[in-house]
C-alpha cells in the first residue's frame, strides 16, 4: 500500500475503491500532484464527459481551465483510448502510451501522469480478456521513470477474483493519504462499499504515538455513525492503545459501534482480560485473523 502522495514517476499503481469519496480523494491528489510537479496529465474516463473529475479538481483549487488550454491536462474516453479501433489491444495501447510519454517530454514537461477508469473492461468488448496481460506489460513503460500510472478499479463492479488478479498485475496499490502520520504510525482513511469510513492502521501504537492514535479515534467517533478500524497492518499496540479503542467506543452515540477488524488473537485476549469486550459499541469482527 502506498499513499498517493508518495506515488512518483516510474510507478504503476492501482486503486481498488469501493466508494466514490475514496476515488475522489485519491484521484484528485494524484492529478493535482502531477500538475504541481510540472508533469503532463492524461485522464481516461469510462463514460463521455469529464465534468465529475474536473469539478473534483476545481474544488481542490486546481485551475482546470488554464491547464486544459495549455494542453497540460487532457481528458479522453475509453472509446478514444483503450478501445480505439473498436477493440482492446494491449500492443496498440502500449504504443499509444509510449508516444504520449515521448510527446510530453518533447514538449518540455517533466513526465506524463496517466490515470484511467477501468470499468469499460466489464462491457464485454473484444480483447478485454487481455487486460491482465496489458497491466503486467505496461509496468515496463512506466518503469523507465518518465511516466506514472494510476489504474482505477471499482471494487463494487469487478468480481472479487478478477479484481484480485488485476491488482496483482500492479507492483503496488495506492491508498488515500494518511490522516495522521508519525514516525512509526500511520492512519489512513478508506471506505467500505456501503460508504462507511474505515481507518486503516499501520505500524506501531505505543506511548510515543498514543496522542496521535487517540486524536484519530476521537475525531472519527465525533464524525457520527460507525467507526471501523482495520488493524491488518498493525505491527504492535500496547495496552494504553487498546484502551483508546474502548474509550472511543464509549464516546460514540448510542446505536453506533466501533468495529475492529483483523485484530490479532493475543490482542483480542487482552480486550477480554480487561473487560473491554463488555464496552457497549466495541465490536470485534469475527473473521480470519493473522497470527
Amino acid at each position: 500500500m502506498r499513499q498517493i502522495k508518495d506515488v512518483k514517476l516510474g510507478d504503476h499503481v492501482c486503486l481498488a475503491f469501493a466508494h466514490e469519496a475514496e476515488q475522489r480523494a485519491v484521484v484528485t491528489a494524484f492529478l493535482a500532484g502531477g500538475l504541481e510537479s510540472r508533469e503532463r496529465v492524461l485522464y481516461f474516463s469510462d463514460a463521455p464527459g469529464s465534468d465529475r473529475v474536473r469539478s473534483w479538481l476545481e474544488e481542490a483549487g486546481v485551475d482546470v481551465a488554464s491547464a486544459g488550454a495549455a494542453r497540460r491536462l487532457e481528458f479522453r474516453t475509453a472509446q478514444e483510448s483503450y478501445l480505439s479501433g473498436g477493440r482492446f489491444d494491449p500492443d496498440t495501447m502500449i504504443e499509444i502510451l509510449r508516444r504520449e510519454v515521448d510527446a510530453s517530454l518533447a514538449a518540455g514537461w517533466a513526465g506524463l501522469r496517466v490515470s484511467g477508469e477501468m470499468s469499460w473492461a466489464l462491457a464485454g468488448q473484444p480483447g478485454t480478456d487481455q487486460l491482465e496481460d496489458f497491466e503486467r506489460r505496461v509496468t515496463g513503460v512506466y518503469a523507465v521513470g518518465r511516466a506514472v500510472g494510476l489504474c482505477q478499479y471499482d471494487a463494487r463492479l469487478f468480481p472479487a477474483e478478477r479484481l484480485t488478479g488485476l491488482t496483482d498485475c500492479h507492483p503496488e496499490q495506492a491508498q488515500m493519504n494518511a490522516l495522521f502520520e508519525t514516525g512509526t504510525l500511520s492512519i489512513t482513511p478508506t471506505f467500505d462499499a456501503d460508504g462507511a469510513r474505515v481507518l486503516r492502521v499501520a505500524g506501531t501504537v505505543d506511548h510515543s504515538t498514543t496522542p496521535t492514535w487517540s486524536a484519530a479515534l476521537q475525531q472519527a467517533a465525533r464524525a457520527g455513525g460507525d467507526v471501523r478500524v482495520d488493524m491488518a497492518e498493525l505491527e504492535f499496540i500496547d495496552v494504553a492503545g487498546i484502551r483508546e479503542l474502548a474509550s472511543a467506543a464509549s464516546a460514540l452515540t448510542e446505536g453506533s459501534s466501533l468495529r475492529i477488524r483483523h485484530l490479532a488473537p493475543r490482542l483480542r485476549q487482552i480486550i477480554t482480560l480487561v473487560g473491554w469486550d463488555a464496552v457497549p459499541g466495541l465490536v470485534i469482527e469475527q473473521e480470519a485473523v493473522r497470527a
Partner: peptide
C-alpha cells in the same frame, strides 16, 4: 487488583500478570 475497564490508566501491570 482487577482494573476498572473505564479507568483512564492502570491496566498495564494487570495485563502483565495475566
Amino acid at each position: 487488583l482487577p482494573p476498572d475497564p473505564a479507568a483512564p490508566r492502570g491496566h498495564g501491570l494487570w495485563v502483565v500478570r495475566q
